[in-house]
Amino acid sequence: METRELRYFVAVAEELHFGRAAQRLGIAQPPLSRAIGGLERRLGALLLERGSRGITLTPAGAVLLREARAALDAVEAAERRTRRAALTAAGQPTVVLAAKAGASGELLAKLLDAYAAEPGAVTVDVLLCGPGEQAGVLRDGRADVALLHRPFDDLAGFDTEDLHTEGQVAVLPAGHPLSLRPHLSLAEVTDLPDLPL
């Protein structure tokens, strides 16, 4: 399969409409329909159910949609990594650091200052992410390094180093029974399950 065919299929599968998919891709509808039909013939599988009420994915189509998205993501990651390697070879290296927007501001500033003071430090571009997005941008090649939060972020497959440990806090209304005990430990909170939080 060619990446062009995968892009075509993903557009149709996401839009569930050939006309909208063709418009999204910037091509005419007849060549798009022929390309999807040819893909189905080569795979020997019906990918889309075409009916009077529209288009739906078949089970085979759902599998191809999942796999095509992963394949296209991998191709895009390879392109990004290759471009960045070319910049590095041309003497313009950069490091992309992914961090959750609004979190770890003080830690991030300290890290960037310490790194900038190192001999041979290269430019660091900070990529601000939404909650839980850092691992994904690290995996797909948009970032070289990330500030992740254990146990919330998926660290599988990464080399990690603990930089900072944050304390846990519980925020309670002023009149709550637990708010009267200012030094309550997390163990004490979990031992009181019948108190409404």
Rank of each mutant, 00 (worst) to 15 (best):
M1S: 04
E2P: 11
E2Y: 00
T3D: 15
T3G: 02
R4Y: 01
E5T: 09
L6Y: 02
L6E: 03
R7G: 15
R7W: 03
R7I: 09
Y8M: 10
V10E: 14
A13S: 11
A13L: 05
L16Q: 13
L16T: 02
H17W: 05
F18L: 13
R20D: 03
R20G: 03
R20K: 14
A22N: 06
L25S: 08
L25E: 11
L25A: 09
G26V: 08
I27D: 08
P30V: 06
P31F: 04
L32P: 10
S33G: 07
R34H: 09
A35N: 02
I36M: 04
G38Y: 00
E40D: 11
R41L: 14
R41H: 12
R42E: 14
L46Q: 15
E49I: 03
R50T: 05
R53K: 15
T58Q: 06
T58K: 01
P59G: 03
P59Q: 11
A60M: 12
G61M: 04
V63S: 12
V63G: 09
L64V: 14
E67Q: 13
R69N: 12
A71N: 01
A74L: 11
E76N: 15
E76Y: 00
R81W: 00
R81H: 06
A85N: 13
A85F: 07
A86C: 08
A86T: 01
A86I: 00
L87Q: 14
A89K: 08
A90D: 15
G91E: 14
Q92A: 09
V95D: 12
V95G: 09
V96M: 00
V96D: 06
K100R: 14
A101Y: 07
G102Y: 15
A103D: 05
G105H: 04
G105L: 14
G105P: 06
G105I: 09
L107V: 11
L107H: 04
L108A: 03
L111F: 10
L112A: 07
L112W: 01
D113N: 08
Y115V: 03
A116L: 13
E118A: 14
A121V: 10
T123Y: 09
V124I: 10
V124T: 07
D125W: 00
L127D: 03
L128S: 11
C129Q: 10
Q134L: 01
A135C: 04
A135N: 07
V137I: 02
L138Y: 01
L138H: 08
D140Q: 09
G141P: 05
G141M: 03
V145G: 04
A146K: 05
L148S: 02
H149Q: 13
P151S: 03
F152N: 13
D153S: 08
D154Q: 10
D154W: 02
A156S: 13
G157H: 00
F158R: 02
D159M: 01
T160Y: 04
T160D: 13
E161Y: 00
E161S: 10
E161V: 02
H164Q: 14
H164V: 08
E166F: 14
Q168I: 09
Q168R: 10
V169A: 01
V169H: 00
V171R: 04
P173S: 08
A174V: 12
A174L: 12
G175C: 01
L178W: 04
S179E: 12
L180M: 12
L180F: 13
R181M: 06
H183M: 01
L184Q: 13
A187S: 12
A187E: 12
A187C: 04
V189Q: 04
L192D: 12
L192P: 04
P196E: 02
